[in-house]
Design a protein around this nucleic acid. Structure first.
Lengths: 371, 371
DNA sequence: CCGACATACTTAACCGATTTAGTTAAGTTA
DNA sequence: TAACTTAACTAAATCGGTTAAGTATGTCGG
C-alpha cells in the first residue's frame, strides 16, 4: 500500500507516445489539440480516438508552459485574508467579475492573500502571466517584486508608479463629493465622517486628526475623504478635525458603541449628517441611530458607499460601484483583451430614504424575532 | 503604454545565464539552490550575489516541474463552494490543519471546489502531485479522473474503492452509537434524528424514510445514522421511520420552524431525545426548544456532533472531532511524510449540560440586545 | 610513494511539449 | 505540360531546468 507509483506498469502516455503509435509526427498530434485547421478532420478524429484509448488527457501543462512561456494563470493579489475576501460583499462581487472573465478565457486564478512571505514561498508569485492587485497591499515590497518580473499588472482601487501597470478605479473623489453635497444641502449643523483604514499602518478604532493628511494612506479612503472635505468646505458648516473616525470592524461591538456615543449629540434635535465610507459602516450607523431612537433622515442623514444589496434592502442612500464590472474590466485588461491603459468608471449617487424623507424610510429589522 | 513586454531590453535571466557569467556550469548553479552540500560555501555565496545582481529569483518553476515531474502543489478537492469552506467552522478548521502542514513543507495548495467541469478546465486537476478529497464529491467522475492519473489520493470522511487511495476518518458509527446510548439512557420516550445530506442526490428539507437505507449516501451521514440506529435498537424505545429528518441549511428559517414543529410534542412533559448530526443543527434545535419554553435537558436532551467552539459556549453535549489534526494527518499522508495507509481517529463523547442536568445548563443568549 | 577516498565541479541526457522552416503530393492555371 | 499554389504533414531546435555519471584535485594513512 505504500507505493505511490502508477498501479499499471505502463508509463503515463505522452504526446510523443501517441504520435509513435499512430506512426505520425509529434507536431501533428500537437496541432490536433492547438491548430485544428492544420490537419485533416479524419486524422484529427483518429488522433483523439487514440488519445482516449491510451488515457491521454491532453498536453502536459508544465511542458506547454515551459515552451510557450505562458502558464495560463493570472495572479490576484488580495489586500486581506482569503476568508475576508469571500465574506465581504464588496470583495466577493469584484472577484465574481474577475472569475467570470477568466472562465470564458479558460484562464486559472491564483489567489495570493497578503502575508509575510519568505524567499521560498515567494516563488509562487512567479507563476502567473499577469496580475490583478485588489487594494493596496500593506507590504509594498510585493508590488516591487512583481513589477521586476516585467509582467503586466492591473491595480484596482489604487495607483502605483511602478512600471508596466495600469489601474482600474471609480471616481472616489467625485462620488464622495457628490454624496456629501447632496447630504449636506439645506442643513447647517454638524457632520461626522465614518471611515476605515485612513491612517498609514494604524488600523485601530480611533478618531483621526484630519489636518495631518500626510499620515493618510494613499488609497480609496484618502480620496473619499478629500471628496467629503471639498464638499464640506463649500458648504461652510460646522466640522472639526476630531469628527473623522476610522473603524477596523464595522460589525464589532466596539464600533457600535462608539457610533452611539458619536450620535448621542443629535438628541438635542439638531439635524446632523453622517458620511460613511462603506455601506457596512452606514448600516452600523443606522443601527446605532435606531437603538437611540434617532429618526433617519429627519434627525440624521446617512450616506453609504458601494451600494451593496443591503443598501437597497435598508433604503440607504449610497454610491453605486459597478463591482462586478470592475472585476471583469480588470481581468480583460490583464489578459490583453482590452487596451492596456488606466480607466476610471463612473460611480453614480443613488438617493434613498436615509437622506430623503419623501422616500421610504430606512429601517433595520431588529432580529429580536430571530429564529 | 500598450506594450506588455519587458521594459528593459535585457532578457529575463536564466540559470544558464548566471552560470555563463560566472564561468561555471549550470549544474553547479542548480546545486547552489537545491544541494548546498555539493559545492563550497564560498562559491555558493558568490552565485547568490550574482543572482541578486542580475535579478534572478531562482529556478523557473515550470522548468523544474517538467524535469522532476513534481509541481510542489497539492490539490484539495472540496465538496462545496469555496465560500462555504471558508465560512463553515468544521471545514475551515480542517483546512487550517492542512495548510499548517503544507506551509512547513513549502507546498502550495490548489483549492478545487466541485463544479461541473468541461474537458478544458479539467486540465487544472493535472497540476497537483497528490490530492486530498474532503468529503464525497457529488460528481463521482472527478475521483475517477484523478485516480486515472495514478497520483496518491487521501479521502477524508469517506472511503472509495479507487486505486492508490487511503482515507482519514473518525469512527462516525461508534461515536454516534456512544452519543445516542448516553442520551437515551434512563429514558423511555421518543427520539428524533436531525441530520443532513442523508439521501443521495436529494438535498431538500424533508423527512426521510429510514427503512430504505439503500437510498442513503455512502457518507458520514449514513454512518452516523447507523450508529444512532444501533443504539436505538438496543434501547428498544419508541422510534418510527418518519422521525429522521434532513436539513440543507441549519440556520434557515424553514429549518427553525420545522424543528419547532417537531419539538411541539414534548409540551406534554415527556422527556425526549434529539440526536443531531452536527453542532450547527444542535444549536438550531436548542434555539427552537428555548423559543418554545422547553427545558433542556430536563424535557429534552440534545446531542451534537463535531464539538465546534460554540458547543462549549452553549454547553452542548457533542462528539469531539480532532478537526485540525485530521487536516494535518491528511496532508502528511498525501505528502508521504506518514505511512500511506488508512487511519481512523478517535472521536470521544464530550458530555455537557444539554444531556446532563448536573452540569451547567445550555443556553443561547438571544441577540435581542444585538449591537 | 601509492592507492583510497573525499571534495568540488562538469558533461550530457532528459523532461514533454511548441513552433519555425521545411518537404511532399495533389490540384490548378495558363 | 510547365509553373505555381495549396493542403497536409515532418524534422529538429528549443524552452529552463535536474541529475546520474564522470573527472580532476587534494588529503591521508601506511
Amino acid at each position: 500500500m505504500k507505493s505511490n507509483k502508477n498501479n499499471n506498469n505502463k508509463a503515463k502516455p505522452t504526446l510523443k507516445y501517441i504520435a509513435e503509435r499512430l506512426g505520425i509526427s509529434k507536431a501533428t498530434v500537437s496541432n490536433a489539440f492547438n491548430n485544428p485547421k492544420q490537419l485533416s478532420a479524419a486524422l484529427r478524429e483518429k488522433i483523439f480516438t487514440e488519445c482516449q484509448a491510451q488515457g491521454y488527457t491532453g498536453p502536459s501543462i508544465t511542458a506547454r508552459s515551459l515552451r510557450t512561456g505562458k502558464t495560463g494563470v493570472i495572479g490576484v493579489l488580495l489586500a486581506d485574508s482569503l476568508a475576508y475576501n469571500f465574506t465581504d460583499p464588496v470583495a466577493s462581487h469584484f472577484l465574481e467579475g474577475v472569475a467570470s472573465t477568466l472562465d470564458q478565457q479558460h484562464i486559472n486564478m491564483l489567489l495570493l492573500p497578503s502575508r509575510s512571505d519568505n524567499y521560498q514561498s515567494t516563488q509562487v508569485d512567479t507563476i502567473p502571466d499577469s496580475f490583478i492587485v485588489y487594494g493596496k497591499p500593506k507590504d509594498a515590497d510585493v508590488l516591487q517584486r512583481i513589477s521586476q518580473q516585467g509582467k503586466p499588472m492591473v491595480t484596482v482601487d489604487f495607483d502605483t508608479e511602478l512600471g508596466n501597470s495600469v489601474s482600474v478605479n471609480v471616481d472616489n473623489h467625485g462620488a464622495a463629493y457628490e454624496s456629501a453635497k447632496h447630504a449636506l444641502s439645506g442643513l447647517n449643523d454638524k457632520v461626522i465622517i465614518v471611515g476605515f483604514r485612513l491612517l498609514n499602518g494604524c488600523d485601530q478604532l480611533r478618531s483621526v486628526d484630519c489636518e495631518k493628511l500626510e499620515g493618510y494612506t494613499e488609497s480609496i479612503s484618502r480620496r473619499r475623504f478629500e471628496g467629503y472635505q471639498d464638499a464640506i468646505q463649500e458648504w461652510g458648516g460646522q466640522f472639526n478635525s476630531s469628527d473623522v473616525w476610522q473603524f477596523p470592524h464595522p460589525k464589532s461591538q466596539a464600533t457600535q458603541m462608539t457610533l452611539r456615543g458619536l450620535l448621542a449629540h443629535p438628541q438635542k434635535n439638531h439635524a446632523t449628517v453622517c458620511l460613511c465610507m462603506s455601506d457596512k459602516l452606514a448600516i452600523a450607523t443606522l443601527e446605532a441611530a435606531q437603538s437611540l431612537g434617532i429618526k433617519v433622515p429627519e434627525q440624521l442623514r446617512i450616506v453609504g458607499f458601494d451600494n451593496i444589496p443591503e443598501a437597497d434592502t435598508f433604503n440607504l442612500t449610497s454610491i453605486h460601484q459597478p463591482l462586478t464590472e470592475k472585476g471583469k474590466i480588470a481581468a480583460e485588461i490583464a489578459l490583453g483583451l482590452r487596451e492596456f491603459s488606466s480607466i476610471e468608471l463612473p460611480a453614480p449617487l443613488v438617493i434613498r430614504g436615509s437622506t430623503d424623507s419623501t422616500l421610504p424610510a430606512p429601517n433595520i429589522e431588529f432580529t429580536k424575532t430571530k429564529v
